[in-house]
């Protein structure tokens, strides 16, 4: 298990964002973190990123308690994308990579490779504010993966991408997985969950109400009847709605 969370509780004032969440993310998996808006997904992701700390409960990285230095082994693409608008693309990529512990020279070497792969060599000296939203997203993706983290966290990675670039991104994600990275993938897009995820967890009201491999989840939630009659596995979309509706808050 690359990440194991145990009874994590996080309270903001009177609002309990996480109410004793436990989950395990196996190394090498593509882990779908699902849940309705406001379920606590982002809070959980922030705790894994050490942006905020749990009130009670603990998080283990690679079997031992999560430590400050571990953030260098994690790459995070938040749902709210953001880069320094006035800063030049190249300088910005190097800055983020150096914050993750890469040397400047190594960061520049890798960044040049990525720029070639994405066909954006000409952007190095452009300012972010000169780029379109989709272009900025590509730059942000590079800043997320440049330090070759073992754990990648993508929060709604495909929003704002046209189908062509979404496919490019998906291919890159799978390539990173093939090279050994574990991916936490938070999304509302159930089709892409079924396409790429090996495991999922469903968070609702600050609790983990469903967890397992895709097949396990299907087996547990498709009734015998449905499986026989429909002769196909229940779609993730249906499981999502059913599980959330059945879950009493």
């Amino acid at each position: 298990m690359i990440i194991r969370a145990e009874s994590v509780v996080k309270q903001y004032g009177s609002f309990r964002a996480l109410d004793g969440v436990s989950l395990s993310i196996p190394r090498g998996s593509v882990f779908g973190l699902l849940g309705p808006n406001g379920a606590g997904k982002t809070t959980l992701i922030r705790i894994v990123n050490r942006i905020t700390a749990p009130d009670t409960g603990s998080v283990f990285f690679d079997g031992r308690p999560l430590q400050p230095a571990d953030v260098a082994r994690i790459g995070y693409l938040p749902e709210e994308r953001g880069l320094y608008k006035k800063m030049r693309v190249g300088a910005q990529v190097l800055y983020f990579a150096q914050l993750k512990g890469l040397s400047k020279a190594e960061a520049e070497r890798r960044a040049r490779e990525w720029f070639v792969r994405f066909g954006i060599e000409g952007w190095w000296n452009k300012k972010i504010e000169e780029l379109s939203k989709g272009m900025a997203q590509k730059v942000q993706f590079i800043t997320t993966v440049l330090h070759e983290p073992e754990l990648l966290i993508f929060d709604e990675p495909f929003s704002g991408f046209d189908p062509l670039n979404a496919q490019l991104l998906k291919d890159e994600m799978l390539r990173l997985r093939d090279r050994g990275a574990t991916i936490i993938f938070s999304t509302h897009n159930m089709a892409s969950v079924e396409e790429v995820c090996t495991h999922i967890a469903l968070i609702n009201g600050g609790r983990n109400i469903l967890e397992g491999t895709l097949d396990e989840v299907r087996a547990r939630h498709g009734s015998v009847e449905e499986r026989v009659v429909v002769r196909q596995s229940l779609s993730m979309h249906d499981i999502f709605i059913k599980a959330v509706n059945n879950h009493e808050l």
């Binding site: 942006i51 953030v71 995070y76 320094y84």
Partner: peptide, 16 residues
């Protein structure tokens, strides 16, 4: 400005 450009979330995943 950092707050508005939403860049903070990325930064604080690397820096306290």
């Amino acid at each position: 400005e950092e707050k508005n450009s939403k860049v903070l979330e990325v930064i604080v995943s690397s820096v306290r």
